[in-house]
């Protein structure tokens, strides 16, 4: 949460700075596929975020000591491109933030992938943030879920993620960078839509129990849209070819 000294007004006349209503998602576009070498891949634009995800495996886990004879191990790497932000150039390479995001993202997918199908193997998930504007971990999870489905790796669910935050008395959905910097609270959440399980939950700032309930409602409602766009993205490449030969 940013300093309150030069905090901008985030809500003006009942609207957010980018004109959105409190519970409104930024425009979201998902494209399945795109990277020929990966077993599965996806590209996503979410507001000004642009994220690409690629999946390799399952393949023999190396080095050997990382193998689990009972199930596959998941390795996940989230990283931000040095040219991804509107501000200054970032040094490339993982920092502490990226390492933590990689870990919580990995745990989302460890829950839904049918790991027991591939003992001794590893599944690699790579998430590259090419352009960032707040909510990149949610964008990365939403994108990686599509990439995993494209790879044919069996999963019990197709997770999605987004975030809520609090500005003044209002809970707002899908925080962009400036809202993320100056809001009173920020809560990224990943959900398995099949039974509504919470797969990722982080929070910092100040929220009441009622705020959290309200926030979860916003997330689930937005989740219907995000899930639908994920499913449409997965069907699109096949329907495009099928339609070519219709009639």
């Amino acid at each position: 949460m940013g300093s309150s000294a030069n905090k901008p007004e985030l809500i003006v006349n009942g609207k957010r700075l980018d004109g959105r209503a409190f519970g409104e998602l930024r425009p979201l576009k998902i494209v399945a596929g795109g990277l020929k070498n990966a077993a599965g891949s996806a590209y996503l634009e979410w507001g000004n975020n642009k994220v690409i995800a690629g999946v390799y495996g399952p393949k023999e886990a190396l080095p050997k000591h990382t193998q689990d004879p009972e199930k596959a191990v998941v390795k996940c790497k989230y990283s931000m491109a040095p040219f991804s932000s509107l501000e200054e150039h970032n040094r490339s390479g993982p920092n502490r933030r990226a390492i933590e995001i990689s870990k919580v993202t990995r745990e989302v997918f460890e829950k839904v992938i049918l790991l027991e199908d591939f003992p001794g193997s590893e599944i690699d998930i790579y998430i590259e943030v090419l352009q960032s504007d707040g909510g990149t971990r949610a964008a990365g999870i939403t994108c990686a879920a599509v990439a995993l489905a494209m790879s044919g790796i069996p999963m019990t669910d197709l997770p999605y993620a987004t975030s809520v935050g609090k500005v003044g008395d209002h809970m707002i959905l899908d925080l962009n960078k400036i809202e993320d910097n100056y809001s009173d609270a920020d809560m990224p959440v990943a959900i398995g839509p099949r039974n509504g399980e919470i797969l990722l939950l982080q929070m910092d700032g100040t929220l009441t129990k009622q705020d959290i309930k309200e926030g979860m409602d916003l997330i689930r409602k937005a989740g219907e849209t995000i899930s639908r766009l994920q499913r449409e993205a997965l069907r699109a490449p096949y329907e495009r070819i099928s339609n070519k030969y219709k009639n």
Partner: peptide, 9 residues
């Protein structure tokens, strides 16, 4: 129909 992981059959 085309289905995705987690979709009800």
């Amino acid at each position: 129909r085309i289905v995705v992981p987690g979709e009800l059959l």
